[in-house]
Design a binder for these strands. Structure first.
Length: 200
DNA sequence: TGCAAACCATAAC
DNA sequence: GTTATGGTTTGCA
C-alpha cells in the first residue's frame, strides 16, 4: 500500500508518496488538489494508495525537508529515492542532477556531456522529474544562463535560485558517476534575470 | 537577434 | 516498429 502525505506551509502545498521507507515521488504546488494530482501522475498505474491526514514521523521529516529546499536552505538529510524502476538513462540524469550543490547551476548540455545522451533528452527528464524539489531540476538552465523551462513557472524557478545563492564566484567541477560535471554560481543566471525584470 | 537543423531518450500509437 | 515530442544547442546570416 502506497502512503501519500500532503501538508501546506505558507500557501504552498508539499506532498510525498511512500512505499515502506522508499520515496516514490515528491512534489509541491499552489493548491492541495494540484499537489495531489502531480503525485498521482508519477505513481504506478492501478496501484492501491491511501492519503493520510497526519504524517508519520518519516513523512513529517520529508515534508519539512521539501519546505527547506523550497526556502533555499541546506537540507538536513538525504533520503532513499525509488529510482530502480525508472529507465536507466533517466536514473543517471536524476542522479547527476542531485549532485549539483546548492548555490550552483549547470546547463542541460553540460549534464548531457556528463551522463551521455543529448541536451534535449536531459530536458525531457527534467520535465518529468518525480522528485521535485528534492532532485534540484531548478538548478539546470540553458547554456547561455537564461532560465530554460520549469513546470511550476519560470518566476518560481528564479525565486528558488535567488534564495539559494551563496555568493560563490567561481565555477567548479563535481564528480558524477565516474564522469565530471561543471557547475557555475547561481549568480550567473540571476544577473541576467534582474536585467529582464523577472526578479525584483 | 533570429532561424534552421542536428540532437536523443521516452512515451504514445 | 514507428512517430511525435520536447524545460536544448549550435552555427550561420
Amino acid at each position: 500500500m502506497i502512503e501519500i502525505y500532503v501538508q501546506s506551509f505558507n500557501e504552498t502545498w508539499f506532498a510525498v508518496a511512500l512505499n515502506q521507507q522508499q520515496i516514490l515521488t515528491t512534489t509541491f504546488n499552489a493548491t492541495e488538489k494540484a499537489a495531489l494530482n502531480s503525485i498521482l501522475e508519477h505513481l504506478p498505474f492501478n496501484y492501491p494508495f491511501q492519503v493520510f491526514q497526519n504524517p508519520s514521523s518519516l513523512a513529517k521529516d520529508i515534508l519539512a525537508t521539501l519546505k527547506d529546499v523550497y526556502d533555499g536552505k541546506d537540507p538536513h538529510a538525504t533520503y532513499n529515492l525509488a529510482m530502480d524502476k525508472l529507465p536507466a538513462y533517466t536514473k543517471r540524469v536524476l542522479q547527476a542532477t542531485a549532485a549539483i550543490p546548492i548555490g550552483y547551476i549547470t546547463s542541460y548540455g553540460a549534464l548531457a556531456n556528463a551522463v551521455g545522451g543529448g541536451s534535449r533528452a536531459v530536458g525531457n527528464v527534467m520535465a518529468a522529474n518525480p522528485f521535485a524539489p528534492l532532485v534540484p531540476c531548478h538548478r539546470v538552465v540553458k547554456s547561455d544562463f537564461s532560465l530554460g523551462g520549469y513546470g511550476m513557472g519560470l518566476k518560481l524557478k528564479a525565486e528558488l535560485l535567488f534564495r539559494e545563492k551563496r555568493g560563490f564566484t567561481e565555477p567548479k567541477i563535481v564528480p558524477v558517476n565516474g564522469s565530471s560535471l561543471t557547475v557555475h554560481p547561481a549568480e550567473c543566471t540571476l544577473k541576467n534575470l534582474q536585467v529582464l525584470g523577472i526578479l525584483g
